[in-house]
């Protein structure tokens, strides 16, 4: 039952080699792990709240998000499409966000209207401090699940996608 010397040495080699591989893999992994994101974000003070009129979407370059107002509520909608990360522009003609990559469409509140996206657009928390809009870019809240449509604004017609059958 007790192993022979040969078997013991063979097992020792295998265990030792295995440990070496694990150690090499682990250290390589630790070394290559991405560093913590330095652009952690923070509180970003913007214009007074009444500078954002109903139905508008204003792009804030520093934080890559839009400040929108729908049904008299303000939102900080992240520009990044929750589908595959394309930058979603606001289409003035339709009054919606229309993603150029795969055609997802969102309303001014960032809620999903159509297309392949799995949820609504992600948002940053937005507060009004002394009448000014302040957006916390350190926090990104997941967009509303499909089917939530509280902030639909009246359709303006038109679409920014030239081919309309899609």
């Amino acid at each position: 039952m007790s192993p022979t010397r040969r078997e013991l040495l063979e097992a020792g080699w295998k265990v030792g080699g295995g440990l070496l591989v694990v150690a090499a893999g682990w250290t390589s992994f630790e070394a290559l792990k991405p560093l913590a994101d330095v652009s952690g974000g923070g509180l970003l003070p913007l214009l007074p709240a009444d500078a954002y009129p109903e139905g508008s979407a204003t792009f804030v370059r520093e934080g890559r998000f839009f400040v929108t107002r729908a049904k008299d509520e303000l939102f900080a909608v992240s520009q990044k499409c929750p589908h595959l990360g394309c930058a979603v522009p606001f289409c003035e003609a339709s009054g919606h966000f229309e993603c150029p990559c795969h055609g997802s469409v969102y309303n001014l509140g960032g809620e999903w209207m159509s297309g392949p996206a799995p949820r609504g657009m992600d948002k940053h928390p937005l507060q009004i401090v002394d009448g000014r809009v302040v957006v916390n870019t350190a926090v990104l809240e997941q967009g509303a699940p499909l089917g939530t449509r509280e902030y639909d604004t009246p359709s303006r017609g038109g679409s920014c996608a030239p081919a309309d059958e899609a």
Partner: peptide, 8 residues
Amino acid sequence: RGPGWGFV
């Protein structure tokens, strides 16, 4: 496929 992944 064209802009917005529309059919072109």
